[in-house]
Amino acid sequence: MRKLKFFEKVMFLANSVVAFILLLSYIVPLLSPKTFAAISVLGLGVPILILLNVLFFVYWLVKIKKQLLLSLFVLTIGYFIFGSLYKFSESKTVVDKNNISVMNYNVRLFNLYKWIPNEDVEENIVSFIKQEAPDVLALQEYHPRESTKLSFYKYKYEKLLGKNKKYGQAIFSNYPIVNSGSIEFPNTFNNAIYIDIVKSKDTIRIYNIHLQSLRIDPKLETLTTKESEKLFNGIGNTFKVQELQAELFLKHKSNSKYKSIICGDFNNTAFSYVYKQVKEEFKDTFKEAGNGFGRTYNFKFFPMRIDFIFTDPSFKINAFKTYDVEYSDHYPIMTKVSL
């Protein structure tokens, strides 16, 4: 520190703070939000903390200063715990006659309330789905008026909630559905649904989960200090609710005898407690076959991956893709898997 100039000392101090916060965030997946609500909020900021530490590392590398070791050390620990934030490898694509393609998409009510100033959003979503033609389609924030336009699917199960039962979750399938149901979450319009499909001689369970929404306004630059504190506390409370919902889901899943695929909008990142709890020993299809940041939510400040598809370890992950289509505040994701 003695050999550093004043500006460099300030930079290293900032570097130290950011590195410590990132290091602290690594324990978030291990801590129950019910007990550590404030710390659990850190999980949302892990992507930006990683990016900041990468920038500090590059800064000290250019300066040829040993201070680069601080961020390098913290980033290395994070890599072994979570893997890389950005996947540099190309998307994996394996052609297999036994492939099942599964798409997950939060369609935000097909733009029912005109959040996007475009009259063709509904038609664009349906055309996109028809073009990509997933064998199984899991939709969150589904609105039933579109059900007839998705009639190219042979089978479907939907669970509508909310006032007058106008919206909810749905799963469409080209494989026969032999069983279906809903896992109700208390005091909310969010829930989880499931179907059992038959492919050849195999019965496979498909889950579609929508955990409690964060309700973050993307225009965060307009927040006052008081509003920021309210937002922080609100996110902590939301994570507590998500933990309860995850527990209800896991209790249900533990009674299933079938190999499962879990789709959903978790409203939380891969650095969260609920992600770790729901994923358990399952495979994250993005980590197995995706590339890039894999962002699934249109949040302009940093890439957020809050939508996931997990598979039972028995599945081979043969492909994964995140689609950069802006018909919702979420981006659709699709994987191809085989037993």
Results as ranks from 00 to 15, higher is better:
residue 228 S to Q: 12
residue 217 D to T: 09
residue 35 T to C: 06
residue 282 F to N: 15
residue 299 F to P: 00
residue 9 K to Q: 09
residue 84 S to H: 08
residue 40 S to P: 02
residue 265 D to H: 11
residue 81 I to F: 12
residue 81 I to W: 07
residue 332 P to I: 05
residue 141 E to A: 05
residue 336 K to C: 13
residue 150 L to S: 02
residue 42 L to H: 09
residue 189 F to H: 09
residue 188 T to L: 05
residue 177 I to L: 09
residue 103 M to A: 10
residue 168 G to E: 09
residue 116 I to A: 00
residue 165 K to D: 15
residue 172 F to E: 04
residue 124 N to I: 00
residue 216 I to G: 01
residue 279 K to T: 10
residue 239 F to P: 06
residue 54 V to Y: 05
residue 241 V to Y: 03
residue 197 I to W: 13
residue 212 Q to K: 12
residue 82 F to Q: 04
residue 325 V to L: 05
residue 97 K to R: 08
residue 2 R to Q: 13
residue 21 I to R: 02
residue 184 E to H: 14
residue 122 E to A: 15
residue 151 S to C: 08
residue 5 K to G: 13
residue 216 I to S: 04
residue 147 S to V: 11
residue 43 G to W: 06
residue 168 G to T: 11
residue 205 R to G: 07
residue 145 R to N: 15
residue 267 N to V: 02
residue 179 N to Q: 15
residue 88 F to I: 13
residue 108 R to D: 13
residue 116 I to N: 00
residue 277 Q to G: 01
residue 94 V to P: 03
residue 58 V to Y: 08
residue 309 I to C: 07
residue 126 V to F: 02
residue 244 L to G: 00
residue 157 Y to S: 07
residue 149 K to V: 01
residue 150 L to N: 01
residue 181 G to V: 10
residue 153 Y to P: 00
residue 247 E to K: 14
residue 90 E to F: 10
residue 47 P to C: 13
residue 257 K to T: 09
residue 116 I to E: 00
residue 324 D to C: 05
residue 251 K to C: 00
residue 102 V to G: 03
residue 52 L to W: 04
residue 155 Y to R: 02
residue 79 Y to K: 12
residue 9 K to C: 05
residue 185 F to E: 00
residue 212 Q to N: 12
residue 91 S to Q: 15
residue 26 Y to N: 08
residue 204 I to S: 02
residue 160 L to S: 14
residue 89 S to A: 15
residue 27 I to F: 12
residue 206 I to F: 07
residue 248 L to A: 07
residue 316 K to N: 14
residue 140 Q to I: 00
residue 209 I to K: 02
residue 47 P to W: 08
residue 105 Y to H: 11
residue 247 E to W: 05
residue 109 L to C: 02
residue 15 N to V: 06
residue 124 N to E: 15
residue 238 T to E: 13
residue 126 V to W: 01
residue 316 K to C: 04
residue 110 F to Y: 12
